[in-house]
Design a protein around this nucleic acid. Structure first.
Ligand code: FES
Ligand code: FES
Lengths: 141, 141
DNA sequence: GTGAAACTTGACTATTTTAGTCAGGTATAT
DNA sequence: ATATACCTGACTAAAATAGTCAAGTTTCAC
């Protein structure tokens, strides 16, 4: 059970971005240098974040990205959703009434994994980008 | 963020096993047939469970496996640990003071992932095999 | 208006992980 | 004896991951 780099980097980059005034755009090159993330990879990630209206892009020289909503209103769950980092614990299709391994009924553990999934998603729904920035500022003192 | 089959099957097989009297051994072939899991794969999994003393093996005809401890005393965390299904959220090495991406300090999100890891592990520490068997019996009524 | 900075898009690929398979054992109840 | 069932380690196909690469377009600064 691992977290992928895409989700990890998306959050890392957004925390970096959220530390600024949210008026002057921040370039991906800067984030790339500061956080040690490949620029090309960041571009992939921000393309998705923009499509889900989490960030706004400003083109041209001196361009970059700014947040499209208040940091308080961006939850971890929104970020993860945007970059297709999803929690997947069950093997079967959720909607289907069939179980895993081609069974006609849900397996012995289906309910357990479902519970686990909710447990994890709760965590993601509670945390906002603002929380993360604050946590970080405090730790620095 | 996905759960692997190894962990999923380990729990599934143990729930199956725990439903019996714990005196007569249950063969992997039976579990394989009932749960639709490859026999060879199950053998791999049970080898690890045996090494961690979660199950006991009985060889020969009419042989099989029984639990080595009470179902109440087997937590999900023990099972996952036995089959090397581990929750890995951070990218860096935990003990090291260095961060991910070769940084000399922990990254902006390190603490967040650490928190997430604890959150998930809590879930695993609370649930016992007995809970799972009970849950299942109830649902069947 | 021209160059450079920075966003935009989509295809491509090496590496790693997963989810098993396969081939050979050994022990024991009947 | 022999069939059943555990035991072990090596091997592999397929999928997912973590990027790279190439070819743009837009806009600011000068
Ligand atoms: S996980 Fe849903 S049926 Fe097995
Ligand atoms: S996750 Fe530990 S330093 Fe980034």
């Amino acid at each position: 059970m691992r977290l992928t780099s895409k989700g990890r980097y998306a959050v890392m980059a957004l925390v970096d971005l959220a530390r600024f005034d949210n008026i002057t755009p921040v370039s991906l090159r800067d984030i790339s240098l500061r956080q040690g993330i490949s620029l090309d990879f960041l571009e992939q990630i921000f393309s998705k974040l923009r499509k889900k209206e989490i960030v706004q892009s400003i083109r041209g020289t001196q361009g970059g990205y700014i947040l499209n909503r208040k940091a308080k209103e961006i939850k971890l769950t929104n970020i993860f959703d945007a970059v297709d980092e999803k929690v997947k614990t069950v093997q079967c299709k959720k909607e289907s009434k069939k179980g895993c391994n081609g069974k006609t009924t849900k397996c012995l553990t289906h309910n357990l994994w479902d519970e686990l999934e909710s447990h994890i998603n709760n965590f993601f729904e509670e945390k906002s980008l603002e929380d993360l920035v604050k946590d970080n500022a405090e730790r620095r003192v």
